[in-house]
Design a protein around this nucleic acid. Sequence first.
DNA 1: AGCATCTCCCAAACCGGTTTAGCGGCCGAT
DNA 2: ATCGGCCGCTAAACCGGTTTGGGAGATGCT
Lengths: 346, 346
Amino acid sequence: MAQRRPTITDVARAAGVSKGAVSFALNGRPGVAEETRQRILAVAKELGWTPSHRARALSTSRAFAVGLVLARPPELLGADPFFPAFIAGVERVLAERNQALVLQVVTSQRAEEDGYRRLAADGRVDGVFLLDLRIADPRIALLEELRLPAVTLGRPDVASPFPAVLVDDRPGIAAAVRHLVELGHRHVAHVAGPEHFLHGSARRDAWEDALRDAGLPPGPCVPSDFSAAGGARATQHLLDLTDPPTAIIYANDVMAMAGMAVARERGLDVPGQLSVTGFDDTELAAHISPALTSVRTDPSGWGGVAARTLLDLIDGTGGPDVEMPPAQLVVRASTAAPPPTPHQAP
Amino acid sequence: MAQRRPTITDVARAAGVSKGAVSFALNGRPGVAEETRQRILAVAKELGWTPSHRARALSTSRAFAVGLVLARPPELLGADPFFPAFIAGVERVLAERNQALVLQVVTSQRAEEDGYRRLAADGRVDGVFLLDLRIADPRIALLEELRLPAVTLGRPDVASPFPAVLVDDRPGIAAAVRHLVELGHRHVAHVAGPEHFLHGSARRDAWEDALRDAGLPPGPCVPSDFSAAGGARATQHLLDLTDPPTAIIYANDVMAMAGMAVARERGLDVPGQLSVTGFDDTELAAHISPALTSVRTDPSGWGGVAARTLLDLIDGTGGPDVEMPPAQLVVRASTAAPPPTPHQAP
DNA sequence: AGCATCTCCCAAACCGGTTTAGCGGCCGAT
DNA sequence: ATCGGCCGCTAAACCGGTTTGGGAGATGCT
């Protein structure tokens, strides 16, 4: 006959003790004699007992899971290497602690807040990750209201009660600017991410600051959307300028690759006539031609740290913000000295 | 004072009925007068009652969630557009039915089976998706043993009790071969995915069959791993042959892009001297130079159908396999007639 | 010996739903 | 007038854990 999985009641009966004693023994709590504890553990193992996650969840009011709500337009989801890598890092930690990851993918901002509300209302998760911080991000207040513990990736620009995993894109961008300036570029443009993203504007600021530090005026900056199509459009725009840049710093690799293609289609040599840098250092970056100079980030590492921070917060052993090592520039073949005479009319 | 969220007991008391009546009313079950039902619903709404997912899960022995175990090497996770798009499609359906998606990312095959075991043991999910089918896939038997309902993406090559969402890569590959043959190619190589993947070998077979149908011998086939680095290596190998192909069909876009870069670095013009096709039609494919001829797939659509199929299966209203429309070739600029005289020594 | 204290365990309540058994009242049929 | 049956509802058991209150017996202290 089909075997029902054993419960602690079965274990208790087999070990000749009460349910409560079994619970105490299995949880390593004091108040049960060592010998009895061993006997109970042995019986439990022999019966093949496994805890019922559902029962535990009900009686302890915990979900033993954390949530991630991802709000990105569908066409970007596939192109963005960040998200899978981040999740992989998260999973590594969650698996150790026997927690699960509940994922929600939504497309609009409105749906995103509903996503958090649903996770909270259903009690599906004990905490959540907050990614893609926005300027004056309303989700902080929402999560506070929902009493849902959270960890933010990056430092919010509003008061936040949540620990943050601090990732600083700025040194990477600054290094890219310095690299280009050292090569002789004076006219460095930027294709940015969406303006309402905090990391987008941080990269933009870093670019501007680094140029200023080099004694150069900021070149043109075009906000875009991290997509290939957006990167291509932005590049067209920049190259159509009467005084086009000799180098473009893109806020991600995908836009940079699309930008390189636009340049080529216009007969511009990269890096001979136009230098290009990306951001993320995706696997493909090293394998296109010319290989893309990019800023290496570590989303998987961030995911691991974010997960650990969140679980600690949930356990009440929450610590302060965690600072991650700054992103590093990886120089490849898409950057070189600018042409002696600009490629536009002299 | 902090408000505890209302339970059905609160609703029952407020409505002057019993717990059971409330439960029946809220679930739309017969046996409660319409007038009473309305009153109960009104009270529940007024009190802001929401069902406790945890309590429901315990008493009904259901998780109201489905699982996805993803076994991919970390470096591939970011590059592969399939996975996020598939998940997005899944989510769209799950959200409608108030189900959650529990994700597990693992790196080794061993860990993958453990992943399913854990999901089953914890009762975290009511069913799972089975992706990346392998030859003689052991996971089918595992899931059967675990009594975990599943839906496979593709038809397994072993007896399977599970419904399948049938995606056929073959017409897309066949179309690519025909397209190249019509352009005049006689020497069409293939850079395949890992051999133990069912879809990898299906694409390979389709390539071979299509060539045979065209009266051509199969060109060289190099198994690879879907990564940019792997695609580059495979391409080097093919171009090093004494009789290199004039066209290469890659099993995904990433390898195709890396392959194009290798060709360029060797001074070969694409498509002038080498035609290249990809598979997936990633967003970037249309925005590199030359734009990549690729086979468009619909992972998001598959995800939606797979989710619906799985939920129906769990509800016991499971139907038969679902056939998805075949993948379509999208012709762009990376394919052209072969050089009149092969690019190697005449 | 008497009493407080401590150790180890048990019984029962509890988490918040679902589900079953059964009961009183009203109906029509006999 | 009585009986059977259905309707509408209640009470209680149940899912499988955790947690609390307390009791029995051993030990320590005076």
